[in-house]
Every structure is written in C-alpha cells, then in structure tokens.
Design a protein around this nucleic acid. Structure first.
Ligand code: MN
Ligand code: MN
Ligand code: ZN
Ligand code: ZN
Lengths: 138, 138
DNA sequence: TGTCAAGTTTAGAATATTTCTAAAATATTC
DNA sequence: GAATATTTTAGAAATATTCTAAACTTGACA
C-alpha cells in the first residue's frame, strides 16, 4: 500500500469489526506500507513502532497481530521454537528459514510441487501445508 | 528395541561420549523401547519418567533430549510456537500435525514428492526440508 | 457538541517453556 | 579406594506470550 493504503486499512479494519484506532493504523502502516512483504516478530514490530514515534504497548502489539491474523491480513509462521513470526504475505507460499540469522524468505507456491500427499489421519481434514526449507550460511 | 535395547543404547551413548547413567538409560528406555515411533515434549517425558518410578529432574530431561539429538538418536520438530517436540524417528520424513490435539503423525519421505526446489538465498545451503501438514478434527 | 456504552489500550502480574548456575552426587580412571 | 571428570539437581533466571482489570478512546446518538 502507498497512499490508497490508509483508506485501504481502515476499510479492512471495518470489515473485521475493528475500530481504526491510532495503534491499529500505526501498526498497519508499518506492516503494510511499502512493496516488500514482511516477516516480523511481535518484539521487532514493537521496537519499530517505538522508533517511528508510535506509542504502543507490547500487549497491544500482540493483540493487534492476532486480530490482523483473524482478519486475514496476516498469517503466523512457526519455524522457531519460542517465537512467532507474522507474515504480511497471506497468499499460498512457503519459506526458506535461515536458522542462523532467524530470517524468513518467501518461496512462491508455484515454485514447489508437492505431488501425492497421503490422506490425513482418520477424522481430520487438511488445513494447510507448510514447507520450511532450513538453510545455513556457508 | 526390546532386549538388545539396553546394550544398544549403552553402545550409542558410548559412541557419543555420554556416560550411561541411570537417568540416560531410563529415559532412553522410555523413548526407544517398543516398536512405535514417538513424538514427545520434554514435559510429557518428564511425567512419564515419574510415573515409571524414574527419579529425574526436568533439567536433566532437557539436557538428555538435547544430547540425544546431537548424538543423532532423536530429532527436534518445530510445529508449535512455544513448545518443542522430540522425535524418535530420525529418518527422512514429514508430519501431519493435529493442531487441536497437539499430535504428530509421521509421513514417510517417499510418500511426498517435492519437485523443483528453488535455489536457496545467496550464501546459504539447504540443511533440511520440513513439510508440516496441519490438520483439524472434522 | 456532550453523554454514554462499548470497545481498546495499558502496566504489570501471571504463565509457560526453556536455560542457567553452582553445589552435590555419581561415574570412571588409576 | 582416592582422585578426577562428568552429571544431576534445585532453584533462579531468561524468554515469549497471555491475562487482568483499570484507564482511556471511540462511535452512536441525543
Ligand atoms: Mn498466536
Ligand atoms: Mn533445542
Ligand atoms: Zn512468507
Ligand atoms: Zn516424526
């Protein structure tokens, strides 16, 4: 988002029945401005907000991230035991994860071909398929 | 392992330069006896040990699990933010993860066909590819 | 525009998992 | 069996996340 951005996020908040508060708008701008997709932890976003002069508590950062996830604006990526990453790319895709630097990089879904998934355990349905390619610096 | 089991684990501990202590042998028996593969958290194993009358501290359970991982007897599986699973199946394979029950089920590597991985980010090498199929009860 | 109810933010406490510390216990070597 | 190295342990600490309940903000509507 660039300039459409603000009205766009206000609209998406409205759709999700979330009031467009100063905190939500500010965090939304940090997350969704610019062209780049972002993979960010709650703590990183909190720090970024502070640096941008946006006063927001860590609890609100967590609340907002989870609300954005439920609203379909973000998704949570699990790659590291003990810390959650939030991903502005909500389309179907996978990840490289640099375990040394803690960095995620997108892999477009169409670049990986998963043939022939076996059927899930009895009484369960597939929710989604996550592929994580763990990499190390050489 | 059944009966060979004990000498087998003693040998593997020796190979890893780990003294075959009461705790390591006891936890090894819980993990590797029986035919079934196991996916277990530190806390679950600690509880199991207590129930089996094996006196062992939680710190030792963690130490032992990590030492077993380094020795190649176990591997760590990351599917849940905030908790690690340890897997007695060290061969190449993937997982169903029931997010409601917190249960892992193996998918043999040969049942999934990943065609055409893109090359990893500059300066990095692929360590391993983890596929997690998240399922929900229907 | 002021009042009110509902929704939101917040500090700080609480929880959960994992790691650390350093002292006591155990295993191995001689 | 004594000396040495390794291991175990309780409890404290670290880390990430969630909870609580009071203060604040928002939006509706008079
Ligand atoms: Mn979450
Ligand atoms: Mn670990
Ligand atoms: Zn992504
Ligand atoms: Zn497994």
């Amino acid at each position: 988002m660039t300039d459409r951005s603000y009205s766009s996020i206000i609209e998406q908040l409205r759709n999700a029945n979330l009031r467009p508060t100063r905190q939500r708008m500010g965090l939304g701008r940090l997350l969704f401005s610019g062209d780049q997709q972002r993979h960010i932890t709650a703590d990183q976003l909190h720090l970024e907000a502070e640096n941008a002069g946006l006063s927001v508590s860590l609890a609100t950062v967590y609340n907002t991230l989870h609300q954005f996830c439920e609203a379909g604006l973000l998704r949570e990526v699990v790659v590291d035991p003990g810390r959650s990453y939030f991903d502005t790319n909500t389309g179907s895709h996978h990840h490289f994860f640099n375990v040394e630097r803690g960095e995620l990089t997108d892999i477009p879904a169409e670049l990986i071909n998963v043939a022939s998934l076996p059927s899930p355990p009895l009484g369960t349905q597939i929710d989604r398929v996550d592929i994580v390619v763990r990499v190390r610096n050489d």
